[in-house]
Design a protein around this nucleic acid. Structure first.
Lengths: 349, 349
DNA sequence: ATGAAAGCGCTAACAG
DNA sequence: CTGTTAGCGCTTTCAT
C-alpha cells in the first residue's frame, strides 16, 4: 500500500507533556497562561508545542470548561446590501475576542428558523445575534429556555427576548427632511420599505414626524409603499411621478437607485427638477449619476455594537441593556439641490 | 436574591436514559437512528427527549467520533457581489448535509490567513473552502500538514493543495464576443479586472482567444486594465472613450455599470453607439439603464460544487478530483445591438 | 510549583 | 436487542 504522504496525526497534551517532560496539567497551565508556572518549564513546554505543531482542541476544552466560545449569527436570505459588512464586522470583532461564529441563513421555508436554533444549541453557542426579521418569538423559544443571550439588530419579535441595537432612524430621516427643507422643498414624498418590517415603519414614522416639524401636517399622505428592492421601487417610482414632487426620500438606497433610473427615462433632471435622498449609503451610492445624497449607516459599527451587547449579557446575564441607538449621518452628494421655484413654494415662516 | 426565571439546565444522555428507563447506550442508538432498537423502546426514548427538551451535544459527539462536522469557509474582505450568495449557498447545502460552517474573512493584515487556519484547525474542521485570493500557499501549510481537504474557488495558490472549482470563463467570454461579432462589431474592447488575480487573467485571455477566433488578431492591444471596482472602472472608461470602440466587454458587472454611467455623461447612446457587456449578472444588472447584457454566473451552484468537491475528498482522501468547470450563460438584455455602420465594419468573411 | 485523578457528554467496542 | 465500560482531549480540584 504505497501511502507515502503520511499526514502527521493531530497531537494532544500528552504528547506535548512527554516531550517537555512534564505532566499534562502543566501543559494545560502553560497554554492557558496561568501565572503559577516556572518560566523555564513554560519555555520547555512552548518549545515542545512549536515542535509538535500542537493546537489545543477547542472542542475538548469547551466540554470541560462549559464555554464553547461560539456565537450564533442568524441572517436573512434576502439580498441585503448590509449582509456582507454586517457578517464581516461581526466575525472580525468576534475573532479578536476569541469567539467563533456559526452562521445560519434562515429563509422562506417555515420551521427552518427553529431548525437553525436547534443546531446552534447543539453546538453550544453562548449567545446569538439575530440580523433578520425572519425569526419569530416561537422560533426563538428554545434559546429562551436555555437562557441564551440574544441581541437583535433593529427589532425583537417580542420584548425581553434580548437586547436590541437599532439605527437612529429618527435623526437620520430628520436630517434628510431638514436638508431638503432648507433647500426650499415642501412637496417632499417618501417611498417606504415593506411596512411589515419594523425598520421600515420606523423610517416612515420618522419621516412623518420630521415633516410635521417643518410644518407639513399631512405627510402620511405623501408616503408611497415600496419594498426595498430595485424592482418594487420601479413600481413605486411610477406612482411617485404622477404626484409632481420636488423631492423624494427613499427608505433605502436601492429604492433611490431605481428612482434615479426612472427619472432619467422620463428625462427628469436630478437634482434640478427632482431631489433624491437615499438611506444606507451602499457602495453604489457614490457611483450612480448623479452621486446620491443619502443617510450613511456604519454597518461595521452596528455589528460591533451587537457583539458588545452580547458580551455584556454574557458577563452579566441578569441585566438587559436598554435599546441602543446607533448614530447615522447625512452625506450630501449631488442628487439634491434647491427646489424649482423655491420662492413660491416656501410658506411664510 | 429574586431569581425567578430559572433556566432549565442543559440535559444529557443520562437524564434521558433515566426518564426512559434505558441505558445511555440505547439513548445514543436512538438519537443516531441505529436500526437495532426496539421500536417501542425507541418511542419511549424519543418521548423523553422531547419532554426534557434534550439536544445532543455535538462537541462531545465530535470528540469521540473524531468527526466535527465543521467546515471552514475562507472569504475575502473585498466587497464582492458574489460574497453573500456564495456563503448562503454553501451554508445551505452544508446544513442540509449535517455540516456546520465556520467563516473567516481574511483581509489585508498579513499573517491573518495563518491565524484563521489555526483557529479552524483548533475547531477541528474536516475541510475548508477557500473563496478568496488572499491565501498564500504558506498560509495554508498547516492544512496541508494535517491533510485537511481543501477546495478552491477559481484557483489554488499552488497545485495539489486541493481541488479547484472554476467558472467556464472561456465559453462565457466567447459567447459574449460572438454575440457582438454577429451584431457586426469588430472594434471590441475589453476592460479587465486586476491582473494579479487568476480569475481576471483567465477572462482577459479568453477575450483575446475569442477575438482571434473572429479574426481579430491584435486583441491584446484592445484590453484596458480595470480592477473590478466601480471606481477603477471610471478611470478605465475614460481611456476607453478615447478609443472610439463600438462595443466593450467588461470583466465584471460593476465595471460595466461604471461604463454605462460614463457613457451617459458623455451623451453616448447605449446600445446604438456603444454596446456593453458585463460579467457576473449581479442583481443590479437588470436595473441599470439600459438593462445590461451580461454573462450570468450561478453563484449558488458554484457554492454547491465546492461543497460536493469537499465531500468527495472526505469520502476518498486519496483522490484529487480534476478541475471542475462550471457553465455560465450569456443573458442578452438591452445594452447590446448592431454596430453603428455595421456594413463598413464587417471584414470580408 | 507541579502531578494525579476525576470527569465534561458522548460513541463504540464488547458482553450478555 | 440492550447494558457496561472505556476512553475522546482537555481543565480542574486536590494533594504533594
Amino acid at each position: 500500500m504505497p501511502r507515502t504522504t503520511k499526514n502527521s496525526p493531530r497531537q494532544d497534551v500528552h504528547t506535548v507533556a512527554k516531550l517537555a517532560k512534564v505532566s499534562i496539567a502543566t501543559v494545560s497551565r502553560v497554554i492557558n497562561h496561568k501565572p503559577s508556572v516556572d518560566p523555564a518549564i513554560a519555555d520547555r513546554v512552548w518549545k515542545a508545542i512549536k515542535k509538535l505543531n500542537y493546537h489545543p482542541n477547542y472542542g475538548a476544552r469547551a466540554m470541560v470548561s462549559g464555554r464553547s466560545h461560539m456565537l450564533g449569527l442568524l441572517v436573512s436570505r434576502i439580498t441585503n446590501p448590509f449582509f456582507p459588512e454586517l457578517i464581516e464586522g461581526f466575525e472580525q470583532i468576534a475573532s479578536i475576542n476569541g469567539f467563533e461564529i456559526m452562521i445560519s441563513a434562515v429563509g422562506q421555508q417555515p420551521g427552518y428558523g427553529q431548525e437553525a436554533v436547534r443546531r446552534m444549541l447543539s453546538r453550544n453557542v453562548e449567545g446569538a445575534a439575530i440580523m433578520t426579521h425572519g425569526m419569530s418569538a416561537a422560533d426563538l423559544e428554545e434559546f429562551k429556555i436555555y437562557g441564551t443571550p440574544l441581541v437583535f439588530i433593529d427589532a425583537a419579535p417580542a420584548p425581553d427576548l434580548g437586547s436590541v441595537v437599532q439605527l437612529d432612524y429618527e435623526n437620520g430621516i430628520r436630517d434628510a427632511v431638514q436638508h431638503l427643507a432648507v433647500l426650499g422643498h415642501r412637496r417632499i414624498w417618501f417611498i417606504s420599505g415593506p411596512l411589515d418590517r419594523c425598520s421600515s415603519t420606523l423610517r416612515q414614522q420618522a419621516f412623518i414626524k420630521a415633516m410635521e416639524e417643518i410644518g407639513v401636517l399631512n405627510a402620511a399622505a405623501q408616503c408611497i409603499a415600496g419594498d426595498h428592492t430595485l424592482e418594487g421601487a420601479i413600481r413605486a417610482a411610477d406612482i411617485l411621478f404622477q404626484k409632481a414632487p420636488t423631492a423624494v426620500i427613499c427608505s433605502n438606497d436601492l429604492t433611490a437607485v431605481s428612482v434615479l433610473r426612472k427619472a432619467a427615462e422620463k428625462k427628469l433632471q436630478v437634482p434640478s427638477q427632482l431631489s433624491v435622498i437615499g438611506f444606507d449609503d451602499i457602495d453604489l451610492a457614490k457611483f450612480v449619476s448623479p452621486p446620491l445624497t443619502t443617510v450613511s449607516v456604519d454597518r461595521y459599527r452596528l455589528a460591533q455594537a451587537a457583539f458588545h451587547s452580547l458580551m455584556q449579557r454574557l458577563a452579566d446575564p441578569q441585566t438587559l441593556p436598554p435599546l441602543q441607538l446607533l448614530p447615522v449621518r447625512l452625506v450630501v452628494r449631488q442628487s439634491t439641490s434647491y427646489a424649482p421655484s423655491a420662492a413660491q413654494e416656501l410658506p411664510p415662516l
